[in-house]
Design a protein around this nucleic acid. Structure first.
Lengths: 203, 203
DNA sequence: TGAGGATAATACCGACCGGTATGGATGTGT
DNA sequence: ACACATCCATACCGGTCGGTATTATCCTCA
């Protein structure tokens, strides 16, 4: 049998991500991850000391890169951060499928489940969220200097509300298991974003 | 030993509610519930056929009455539903304590956890949420007839956004384990509500 | 080519879980 | 006071879980 430790580790991470996404961390079954990958406990516990380390590695090596690519890089690189944010949200609204809605946002799921229970998870996930929020704040601030975002909007509070709304949307949609609700809800958020544009004079 | 079946059942429900609130339904331990109450499995499985039935009973007999009293009755009975809604949110913002934020909203927690897994839970909780949403829609519609809510607002979409925002607020606050975040977030929502008042002309 | 570390498979453990079978205690109708 | 249903305690079961100890296999490098 050919060996490939890196790929072994990677496939363990992918399978763990899927299992955690489907059942949450606590209910995620080591046995299921192993049968998904065709591996055994020897492989898993060689690469990870215990289940918690596996979970944290999933956050660092699977969730974080995807999230950064999807939600952070576009805001950071665009000369029009507000428009970029709007585009990200619109694309999420239009492209996400029912299966994703059924399971919900992996980050949100993990935070909801683990934040009250484990400090390690809380710290890792909070770091991600803070990065998100800081990216939004920086983007909004910059948008304000270019006039893309109107004055009178507090970037920090707006960023908080945006984060909260996005999680609210996906939370409600997951709760109701309804893709339509998700889209309607995000549409409302897009409307809110449009009220932040420069040129208008409304609160 | 004196007997009191109703109280036995009630204390089981209360303990189950606490245990589920702390650990979620799947991770809620029957043994812990029993040691909390000082009862044994004989009592529990006399009153409830299995764990799922216990969970559903918690929803019906503990969660629903509290939720109705807190969030539904004020909207339904007030002649100024928008103001009543605002008052409810403000009071939640100001009175909720850190322990509650740490654990999150019991309804939201349960929906997030169980909706994808079990149709019975999903149905029971969806019924609650629909009741909430319909109450809000009815209230907003009525407020529109009295001029409390300005025209041009779609009550259904606004209600959806309000529900989503509230869950977003408590979700973010629980994730960050931060009471301050909760308050800041709900303040943003109150601001949003104030933009819905009649008399103003902004979108 | 052979030694030794890296990698993975197998078998097994104790703990805990939800659930059941049984029997004893308590209340109730007659 | 007796029969009977309600109510609850106790002991136990099969199954699953995360984790460990041991052993086998592969790769690397001297």
């Amino acid at each position: 049998m050919k060996r490939n430790p890196d790929q072994t580790r990677q496939s363990l991470l992918e399978a763990a991500f899927g299992e955690i996404h489907r059942h949450g961390f606590q209910a995620a079954s080591i046995g299921q991850i192993l049968s998904d990958t065709g591996l055994t406990k020897g492989a898993l516990y060689h690469h990870f000391p215990d289940k918690k380390a596996l979970g944290l590695a999933v956050i660092d090596d699977v969730i974080r890169p995807r999230f950064t690519a999807w939600h952070l890089d576009p805001i950071r690189t665009s000369p029009f951060p507000l428009a970029a944010l709007r585009a990200v949200i619109v694309s999420r609204r239009d492209e996400v499928d029912a299966a994703y809605i059924a399971l919900g946002c992996p980050i949100n799921n993990l935070m909801q489940e683990m934040s009250p229970l484990d400090e390690g998870f809380r710290a890792a996930l909070t770091a991600l969220v803070n990065e998100w929020q800081e990216t939004l704040v920086a983007g909004l601030r910059y948008a304000q200097t270019t006039g893309e975002l109107r004055d009178g909007v507090d970037p920090a509070q707006a960023a908080l509300f945006i984060v909260s709304s996005i999680w609210g949307c996906i939370g409600v949609a997951k709760s109701l298991q309804s893709l339509e609700t998700y889209r309607a809800c995000l549409t409302q958020l897009v409307n809110y974003l449009d009220t932040l544009k420069g040129g208008t004079s409304c609160p």
